[in-house]
């Protein structure tokens, strides 16, 4: 992943609340085994009319939305299915940051792991952004601020580890793999405990059939 420190773009606004991941990428496009090329199906059934032409009613099809890489979305964006195809599709479409007053948990996790900024702002500034599509916005990941065209700044919060990974351009699996010794120790300790409970050797207890209990 490339490090992300700053994004500067005009905003596109999708004011609808509760935009679910089925709307971002309909399920019939999930038969892919790749992460690539989902951008053309991003918001597919909203964006394209049955005859294949662009739906002029869809906010992102308006001329002023062209080239915008910051999406300001209504509350509870990304709810529903856990499909990571949603952030893949948005990124491939050209979106680099999603801003809302509330973003669904799984979508936010998925987005940040792919370098798609998922930013939650307070109601007043979110409302203002919804009402002013096309404003030039600066996002500073280091300072955790967004800057409006008139220079006003608003802070946001990113989970510190996700932020670290974005800034350094590193992925989280690398960090997890570095914890290998601790994970091994945890597994050995648990197998030993199970064996003690069941009066067997740890080797015999290496069965996935029992929960950890307390």
């Amino acid at each position: 992943m490339k490090p992300i420190t700053r994004i500067r773009s005009r905003t596109a606004v999708l004011a609808d609340e509760n935009v679910d991941t089925d709307r971002i990428i309909p399920a019939r496009f999930l038969t892919t085994t790749s992460r690539e090329g989902l951008g053309r199906h991003c918001f597919n059934d909203w964006r394209w009319l049955p005859d294949g032409s662009a739906n002029p009613e869809f906010a992102l099809n308006r001329p002023e939305a062209a080239g915008c890489s910051i999406l300001v979305a209504g509350r509870n964006f990304g709810c529903g299915s856990s499909r990571e195809h949603a952030p893949w599709a948005l990124l491939d479409y050209g979106i680099q940051a999603v801003i809302s007053s509330e973003i669904a948990d799984i979508f936010r996790n998925n987005a940040l792991k792919n370098g798609l900024l998922a930013i939650v702002l307070g109601e007043p500034v979110h409302r203002w952004l919804l009402a002013h599509p096309g404003v030039e916005l600066g996002i500073d990941v280091v300072a955790e601020t967004i800057t409006l065209p008139d220079g006003r700044e608003f802070g946001f919060w990113l989970e510190p580890f996700a932020r670290h990974c974005l800034l350094e351009g590193v992925d989280q699996l690398g960090f997890l793999l570095q914890q290998g010794d601790l994970i091994d120790a945890f597994i050995r300790e648990r197998e030993g405990r199970e064996a003690a409970i069941h009066g067997r050797t740890a080797q015999e207890s290496r069965s996935p059939t029992t929960g950890a209990g307390t």
């Binding site: 856990s82 499909r83 990571e84 799984i106 996790n109 998925n110 792991k113 792919n114 992925d171 989280q172 699996l173 997890l176």
Partner: peptide, 8 residues
Amino acid sequence: IGTTEVGH
């Protein structure tokens, strides 16, 4: 979880 986490 998402696919990246499936990998984790």
